[in-house]
Design a protein around this nucleic acid. Structure first.
Lengths: 197, 197
DNA sequence: GTCTATATACGGATAGAC
DNA sequence: GTCTATCCGTATATAGAC
């Protein structure tokens, strides 16, 4: 069965906001691609921004099933899971010729003064991502220095992904993304070596 | 003498694009704040995008005099210069209550499929920034492992800044920026320790 | 180079029948 | 819940006098 109209609208909006940005996606674009009419959309969502909130909520709920589970298929080592997650973003860049990166990061910088509910959902998406990485680091705590701040380190992994994706899109090249992940990998190696002693 | 109209338009556009974004800044906003009329702007710039190109070019030319020189006042140590540069972005966040970060990064993610000249000027801005950091690292080469890729490391510094700024703006808090810079500092410490042995 | 007035398109959102 | 038709503001850009 084809998804109900509301879900279809959210799905199309998710796709188009990621592809073209929030401001550059018109309500008419969404209606056209979803095969719906203005009246339907405004029946479910009072404003375009409410549709954005639904999109951000779907991203947040999808962190586990849509992002982590596929990325971690067949990867059990917690530190390798961190880098498998980064590899997934790399694959998105490859598939899109370096035009598609992290939709949350793009929206976070596109919307300069977002209304509080929007900003909070963006932050909640980052928090969920960082928390998942932090659980990996906790699982690997025996291989890291005891005094390392694992929350800071998890934030730093997200920083590396977002900063690397931004530069890759701008240069239309994977080089800067790979350089960033290489340096993060080197940092992890040195942390693990410090533990060995 | 008050700046010539053209320069004033570029200056106002630079400010408003950084504050509100490119798409959310109307030509009328710029004209109003610059005290100019439509005819003047379109006399100098055929389209709004040409004005953006002038803004990006001014950023690029300003990397030395407007960014590096102020950040490096009284700082001679090349590695401290890297962190002084990051501290300058932190200060921008403080001054703006975490709303103003890096205008180049914001534009890079706001414009999803920029016309080639725009994308190239964004990339040139990143290149100039990275090259400056790389020169610092070259100046400190004796304190870093001989086999470290200093270009990758310079890219990683920009990655840290951009990723940290993005999260700080989203959380309206310096914590994630500070966490990222702390981890980068720890990485540098470990690189220098590796050299000592 | 600068001014005013305006063309023209498209945006989000609404009205009201079905 | 869905449809068509449309309101109305604002956007970029232009025309042509001065």
């Amino acid at each position: 069965m084809t998804p109900a109209t509301r879900d279809r609208l959210v799905g199309v909006a998710m796709r188009l906001f990621a592809l073209k940005g929030y401001g550059s996606t018109s309500v008419a674009d969404i209606l056209h691609e979803a095969g719906a009419n203005s009246g339907s959309l405004y029946h479910f969502f009072p404003t375009k921004q409410d549709l954005l909130l639904a999109v951000l909520d779907r991203y947040r709920q999808g962190i586990g099933p849509m992002l982590l589970e596929p990325a971690w298929q067949g990867v059990d080592d917690p530190i390798e899971r961190v880098f498998a997650l980064l590899a997934r973003y790399r694959q998105h860049l490859v598939n899109s010729e370096c035009t598609y990166g992290c939709p949350i990061g793009s929206l976070a910088l596109e919307l300069h003064e977002p209304d509080p509910p929007v900003r909070e959902l963006l932050a909640a998406n980052f928090d969920g991502w960082v928390a998942a990485v932090e659980r990996c680091l906790d699982d690997a705590r025996d291989r890291l220095p005891a005094d390392i701040d694992r929350h800071e380190l998890a934030v730093f992994v997200l920083t590396t992904m977002e900063g690397g994706v931004m530069q890759a899109r701008t240069h239309r090249s994977l080089d800067t993304f790979d350089a960033s992940v290489n340096r993060l990998r080197d940092y992890f190696r040195r942390l693990q070596q410090a533990k060995d002693r």
